[in-house]
Every structure is written in C-alpha cells, then in structure tokens.
C-alpha cells in the first residue's frame, strides 16, 4: 500500500509540467469534467453492491439499502 502510494506520488511529481492558463483549451473540454460520469443512480448501485466506499462527497447521507 505504502509502496503503491509512494510510486504514484513520485510519478505525479516527476510528470508535472507547468501549464499556463492559455494552454488549457483541452482541459476545458466538457468531457474532462464530471459531465460524463456515472449518474447518481449508478453511483448508488455501485455503493450498495461493493463493500467499499470513498472518493465521493463528505456530506453523503447513508441508507439501509443492502
């Protein structure tokens, strides 16, 4: 786990290049944000079917769904 985290951290740091604001045309493409992602219903199905959570909002409410 620590090894994976360190490797990812190292890769990110090494890969960083400064991107000026005027170079961000591709980053601003609508598909680069959350516009195309699993909807709330699919997220909910995954949360119920998988015994793992994380990576979402901090203020999620629970449910008695499984």
């Amino acid at each position: 786990m620590k090894l994976v985290f360190s490797a990812v951290l190292l890769a990110l740091t090494a890969a960083c290049t400064h991107v000026a604001p005027y170079e961000r045309g591709k980053l601003a493409h609508p598909t680069m944000n959350d516009a195309v992602s699993a909807g709330p219903a699919a997220e909910h199905v995954y949360a119920v079917h998988e015994g793992a959570t994380g990576g979402g909002s901090v203020a999620e409410s629970g449910c008695g769904c499984n």
Binding site: A15, C16, T17, V19, E23, R24, G25, K26, L27
Partner: peptide
C-alpha cells in the same frame, strides 16, 4: 494536479 495541457 495538471500533468500537462491535456492531462489532469
């Protein structure tokens, strides 16, 4: 982290 003009 932005990793380049096309990658985040």
């Amino acid at each position: 982290q932005l990793l380049g003009p096309s990658t985040v």
